[in-house]
Structures are given as C-alpha cells and as structure tokens.
Design a protein around this nucleic acid. Structure first.
Lengths: 226, 226
DNA sequence: CGCGTCTTTGATGCAAGTCAATCGCCGTGG
DNA sequence: CCACGGCGATTGACTTGCATCAAAGACGCG
C-alpha cells in the first residue's frame, strides 16, 4: 500500500460518478477535500467483517470485492465495485462496523473519506441527505435484483442477463471486453468459476462467442429468450 | 377491500415502530395525518411489478409478501412485512415504479401515506431524511444478510438461523409460535415448502420440536453449531 | 521459450426442486 | 356428535443443477 496525492483526473472521476453528480460541485469538492488516496494491490484486505470502519471508500481505479465467509470458509460475494463506485457507506449508519470483508480484486487506487464528517454533512445539508437516500435506494434495488436472480435463474440465464446488461441499448449484435477476470464475474453472479465456464459453453449455441475476455453477442434476442 | 378509520391503537402501533421512533412525535403525526386505512384479505394484490405507485405502505396487522416472478412463473420472495413495518418506500426514489409484486399473505390492515408528501418532507426536514437513511441502511443490511445466507447456507442452516433470530437473547432453551404459515416462512427463506419441512425434521435430532406453529428449542447451542 | 496463473473440461456427489400421494387439522353441515 | 371436505404439511421417489475434485489446456508475462 502506498499513499498518493489526488490529481485533477481523480477529482474528475469522482465528481462525475453517480453519487456526486447529484450534488453541486462545491459540495462534492468539500466532501473530497481531505480524502486520503492509496494504491493497493490485488488480494490486499481493506477491512474484515466486524471491523470498526471510520471511512467511506471510493474506487478510483481497479476493483474491490465485498464478501462474507461461511463457517466452512466458503466465500460469497455481496458486492463488486469498480471505478467511480463508492462502498462502505452503510456502515456509518450501522454503528461503524463492517458487515462484510473487503478485498482488492485487482491493483487499485482507492480514496477514503472520513465518514463522521460525511455523516455530519448528511445531517446538515439536505442535498447530501437526498443524494444518500437515492444512492441507498439504488443500491437496495440492485440487491433485490441480485436476490431474485439467485432464486429464479439458472447459471446460463444469469450470465445471459449480465451480458444483456452490458449491451448498449438498441443494438441487436455487439461486442465487449469483460471488465474483470472471469473468476470475479463468477463470484458476482454467485457461481463457481467452473459453472461460469460451462454457462458460457451453453450460451455458445445461442450466438455468444468468448475469446479470452472478449465477448461477442450475435443476437441479443436469442439471449433474451433464454 | 374495505376502508377504515384510523384508531388510536393504530397510531400507537405506527408511532412505536422502528421508522417512526426516530422521529419527534409531532413529525410522525404529521406524516400519518391523511393516511388511508384499508382492510385486505389473503391473496389480495396491492400492486404489481412495474405499476406506478404513489403511496408508501404501512402494515398495521397481518402480513404482506413482496415477490418477483420469473419467466417460467415461479415466484421468489424478496421481502415479508409484518405489523409495524413499512414497505414501498424505495419506489418513491426510483421513478415511482414498483420493483416487485405485493400480495397480502393473511388478512391485514394496511395504511397508505402519500409518497410525494413524504418525499417533500424528507427533502425539507433533516430528521425525516435521517430516518430514511437509517431505515434504508438497515434494509440494505438485511438484504445483504439474505443474499449471503442464500449463497452460504443449506436449508437446515437457514432454518436454524431463523429460529435463533427469534430467540430472546440469553436464554438457552425457549419456545415460540411461528408468526405465519410455514409456507410463508419457506418463501422468506428461499425454500420450497417441502424443503422447509425436511429441514425441520433434520433439526429434530438437534433438539427442535415442532407441533403446528409451536416451536420448541431445547438447546440453542446445538443450533449454533449446526 | 518456460513458468505460473487462469480457465476449461470431465467425473462424481449432494442439496434441493418437483411431482404425487398421504396425513392431519379444522370448520361445516347433516 | 360424527362424517365430510378442503387446505396445509409431510413424506417418498425421482430429477436436476450446481459444487467439488482432479487433470489438462490456454494464456500472459518474464
């Protein structure tokens, strides 16, 4: 881990992300003022379930995985955060205790903001409070989606869903690069890596080609039917 | 469905529940003023996924099940709400569209509060905003728990967890009545009713007796080990 | 080119969903 | 009071989807 100075590029990433976009620029700047930047490498642990956390985390680059571990040591991802996303925000309203483990999933630059400061701001500035509320609702919906997906869909269906979610809307055939390792995607979808692999094979006959991280979808409608 | 007048008992239920307890009584009264009360019977549908919703719902008695349906018609519960709980609050920050279906799971009395009014209040009154934020964080944690539970635990483990969550803390042996039908519990835990039934049998040898809705746990530590 | 890591493939086992039949409980009506 | 009917719960037999373990293959990087 290495601390860094925040560049103007970093500022732009943050002020452009979903959470900050709702806020006046001056408010965003105020929140970011005093943020601590650090470089982390893959497999670094940011915190563990039950730890006391006094910061909110912002991903400037790279990837962070939030997961819980079962009694038998198995891990289940409850969230994966990429550039421009923020996590750990709910702990500041839950006694400042982490509800999951956070592990860096690829070399990353991560900013921390003092959560007490942010909380006070949320209490005094209605804009900030509003931004939090919307952010939390959005997060809640995603978790609901995830749960429903887990309970209703088979592995190939989940993968098809994910692919469709990456589809620029309107296009019937498209191509993109997975933003992370397949094993990470597997975790995100609640699958073992082997299951993801098999799901991709199953989707091949519905017009999905996979070469390394490059994915090609020939007909999105075939996926929707799946 | 039959509309009713709100009684002082109803008021007490609501002002005593988690969400309103954070607020000054006068604020709670202001929110509740103008709430519409109605009696619903089992299997009534309150709304469907995608419907436009202009209310927030409060359960005064009975039970409501929130669920999504898959393409094949199978249903997956994403929430079950009992007396004193509130739902539908996130739709007002998500374009007023329901993200799931709501069905009354047993004869219930349900209040509705105009969500626009509530939203305005959240924007102008920092107490209300704060209450929402905490409520949403709490909700988020529960969903995270649910997801992790789905991915990490077997059916008997989930049931054991649920039983422990009902245990008055400190007691090693206890007894209680299920607050709803077993099939509802099954849905809540993401299981088919048959699987719940089998899970109960499996737990019998760990000191769990089931007679109708009455549950008796002889040794909570045996469950914790499970 | 060679090594390590990630991914794929194959074989096997297990947990839970499904379908179907039975049982138990409770309320109704004779 | 008992017989009946209906609904929910249980049990059994079967099927399926996925995890797991193990081995081979592909890819990226030095």
């Amino acid at each position: 881990m290495k601390t860094l100075q925040m560049t103007s590029i970093d500022r732009n990433i943050l002020t452009g992300c979903r959470f900050f976009k709702r806020l006046p620029l001056s408010t965003a700047e105020a929140i970011l003022h005093g943020a601590a930047l650090a470089e982390h490498e893959k497999y670094d642990s940011l915190f563990r379930q039950g730890d006391r956390i006094d910061d909110v985390f912002l991903v400037l680059s790279g990837l962070v995985r939030l997961y819980r571990v079962g009694k038998d040591g198995r891990e289940a991802d409850v969230g994966v955060f990429a550039k421009g996303e923020l996590f750990g925000e709910d702990t500041m309203f839950l006694g400042y205790r982490a509800t999951a483990n956070a592990e860096v999933a690829e070399n990353s630059v991560i900013a921390r903001v003092d959560s007490r400061k942010l909380r006070q701001l949320a209490a005094s500035d209605p804009d900030v409070a509003q931004a939090f509320i919307e952010h939390l609702c959005h997060r809640g919906k995603m978790k609901e989606d995830l749960l429903a997906q887990d309970r209703l869909l088979t592995a190939p269906q989940r993968v098809a869903n994910y692919l469709l979610s990456q589809c620029p809307n309107g296009s019937t055939s498209f191509c993109f690069r997975l933003p992370f390792q397949k094993s990470v995607l597997a975790g995100k979808l609640g699958l073992a890596p082997e299951a993801l692999s098999r799901a991709f094979s199953a989707l091949r006959e519905s017009g999905v080609s996979v070469k390394g991280r490059m994915i090609e979808i020939h007909d999105r409608h075939a996926l929707e039917r799946f």
